[in-house]
Amino acid sequence: HMTFVALYDYVASGETDLSFKKGERLQIVNNTEGDWWLAHSLTTGRTGYIPSNYVAPSD
């Protein structure tokens, strides 16, 4: 899985979304859904959809 880092805080707007904090590391499970990607937080262990423009590839 690709690892990304959150650029901003995001508060989930629905049950399927994943809240995260700036700097949180996320594994992308599925990024074929356009602007919303299914991600797994390496910080909280939770999985949900995130806005793709809130994250950047982590080196």
Rank of each mutant, 00 (worst) to 15 (best):
H1D: 12
H1V: 12
H1R: 08
H1F: 14
H1C: 14
M2E: 10
M2C: 14
M2P: 13
M2I: 12
T3H: 14
T3R: 06
T3L: 14
F4V: 14
F4E: 01
V5S: 04
V5G: 01
V5F: 08
V5M: 07
V5I: 14
V5P: 01
A6M: 06
A6Q: 00
A6C: 07
L7M: 08
L7C: 08
L7N: 04
L7I: 10
L7H: 03
L7P: 02
Y8C: 11
Y8D: 06
D9I: 01
Y10G: 01
Y10Q: 01
Y10R: 05
V11W: 10
V11G: 05
V11M: 10
V11K: 09
V11R: 07
V11C: 12
V11H: 11
V11T: 12
A12K: 05
A12N: 04
S13F: 10
S13E: 13
S13Y: 10
G14R: 15
E15A: 15
E15Y: 10
E15V: 11
E15R: 09
T16D: 14
T16G: 14
T16I: 09
T16M: 14
T16P: 05
D17N: 09
D17T: 08
D17R: 12
L18F: 08
L18R: 02
L18W: 03
S19Q: 05
S19P: 06
S19K: 03
S19I: 05
S19D: 07
F20P: 00
F20N: 00
F20D: 00
F20L: 07
K21G: 06
K21E: 08
K22D: 01
K22R: 11
G23C: 05
G23M: 03
E24A: 02
E24H: 04
E24D: 12
R25K: 13
L26T: 00
L26A: 00
L26E: 00
L26P: 00
L26V: 04
Q27L: 15
Q27N: 08
Q27W: 15
I28N: 04
I28Y: 02
V29L: 15
V29S: 07
V29M: 15
N30H: 09
N30M: 10
N30W: 10
N31G: 14
T32Y: 09
T32R: 09
T32N: 09
T32L: 12
E33G: 13
E33L: 14
E33S: 14
E33V: 11
E33H: 14
G34N: 12
G34L: 11
G34V: 12
D35A: 12
D35Y: 15
D35E: 13
D35V: 11
D35C: 11
D35Q: 12
D35R: 09
W36I: 07
W36A: 04
W36T: 06
W37M: 05
L38Q: 04
L38K: 05
L38P: 02
L38E: 05
A39P: 00
A39Y: 01
A39W: 01
H40A: 09
H40Y: 15
H40P: 00
H40Q: 13
S41A: 03
S41M: 02
L42Q: 06
L42F: 08
L42S: 05
L42I: 09
T43R: 10
T44E: 03
T44W: 02
G45L: 07
G45S: 06
G45Y: 06
G45P: 01
R46M: 13
R46A: 10
R46F: 08
G48C: 01
G48A: 04
G48M: 02
G48N: 01
G48I: 01
G48Y: 03
Y49C: 09
Y49N: 05
Y49Q: 05
I50Q: 00
P51Q: 05
P51A: 03
P51N: 06
S52Y: 09
S52R: 12
S52D: 02
N53E: 10
N53W: 14
Y54T: 05
Y54D: 01
Y54E: 01
Y54C: 07
Y54W: 07
Y54V: 05
A56I: 14
A56P: 04
A56K: 11
P57D: 06
P57C: 07
P57E: 09
P57K: 09
S58K: 08
S58R: 06
S58F: 15
S58N: 09
D59G: 15
